[in-house]
Design a protein around this nucleic acid. Sequence first.
DNA 1: CGCGTCTTTGAGAAACATCAACAGCGGTGG
DNA 2: CCACCGCTGTTGATGTTTCTCAAAGACGCG
Lengths: 226, 226
Amino acid sequence: MYVTFDSDLLSRAPAIPLPGTAASGPLRDHQVRLKAGQFLFHQGDEARTIYRVSEGVLRLSRVTERGHEQVIAFGYPGDILGLPVRGLRNTDCDALTPAVLTAIPAHLPETSSGGAAEATFLAAAALWEIGAMQEHLTTLGRTSARERVASFLVVLMRRVGTRDDTGLHIELPMSRADIAGFLGLRTETVSRAFTDFRQSGLIALPSAQHVTVLKPEALADVAESD
Amino acid sequence: MYVTFDSDLLSRAPAIPLPGTAASGPLRDHQVRLKAGQFLFHQGDEARTIYRVSEGVLRLSRVTERGHEQVIAFGYPGDILGLPVRGLRNTDCDALTPAVLTAIPAHLPETSSGGAAEATFLAAAALWEIGAMQEHLTTLGRTSARERVASFLVVLMRRVGTRDDTGLHIELPMSRADIAGFLGLRTETVSRAFTDFRQSGLIALPSAQHVTVLKPEALADVAESD
DNA sequence: CGCGTCTTTGAGAAACATCAACAGCGGTGG
DNA sequence: CCACCGCTGTTGATGTTTCTCAAAGACGCG
């Protein structure tokens, strides 16, 4: 008796409890505030803490030798960011909107002693991240641009979509170039996919950063079609 | 000692020590042997242990609704397989060659108490895996088929390539379809990339499963060109 | 040796990238 | 408050790449 992964992985916000210091007082002291465009860390920085997003949206990216930017992930509230690989940040991270984050100590103890709660938390967060990345890999494995864009929208719709009397809304704080970099496409192709969905009646685009999903099921069909 | 690792991620075999039960006796009891084609686990299985590959090559894959197979990773000796997501296997895993694996207990304790060594090990393995997956994401973000195939060959070359007096050899126990599924391409496209490299003098193909790298630097250049 | 499977090759169609120009929007300064 | 300017996003036309469909060759296995 288990649920299909797709659905569960998409709503991961409150899944991982913070390390067992719940009684140690408010975490205000460890909060970080970022303005849009500010960097939280850079690739190669030494990593002693990780972050949980409280508010805002962040972008994790890597830059190849020739300057091509690959977007690894977007960080939404509830997400854990900055998991260290060999003790170092593995990506750049900057804020797409004003953001508030909670810093969590997360250095792996050299000895196996001590920090059991931390290690457990780290492991849980990392395993969660792996699941999300595998989902993303599956998305990138799909060859069609429309499928990738539709999949992207469906994920956002389920995670951060808001429904009111006018429809199901998604805000897109990232640029088309960011979306393209995330999906392995070009900005023009992403734009054309949006236009295609709009002309097909699947979505409306009140503005470039605001998507109204008119036919969620149809959009999901596009995303999951072979 | 010939290899120069661009990234430490490529030589991850001996990086993560087993949990702190080194004195608890030989691990023979926990070894698993698989024949080629046998499954180690399936997506959705409950996961109480993880595995470290001792010998052989395994394939981790997921199957979409419509039967399209996405290969998530290949498991080579030293790799950790089967990290649980929400306590369940997130992929299928089957052996491409006869394989020997060591089972490692790795259930995250519900309470934060106990299993500090296990949690630390799990966290280290998971973080390592994240780094590897981010590398792969960067590869998939590249648009060109030849770049992806070249990148794939370079990674294998550095991890499992063997040099003798006749050249630098790579065995490919996986099919072209597996490689295609891993890189988000079609088998024909993968085959054409191999042919292209062969005609360009970068590699030789004594058989479909045996690659001899003639110009490693040139191949790496193809892999990392924008 | 025959057979099925995997790989390679070919020709054609479709998709995406590229190059280029325009529109829309927000911000700035007059 | 409005005009201007720059940036992002959109649209169009063209070229390249890859996918698709098809068939022949190579290889391993019984």
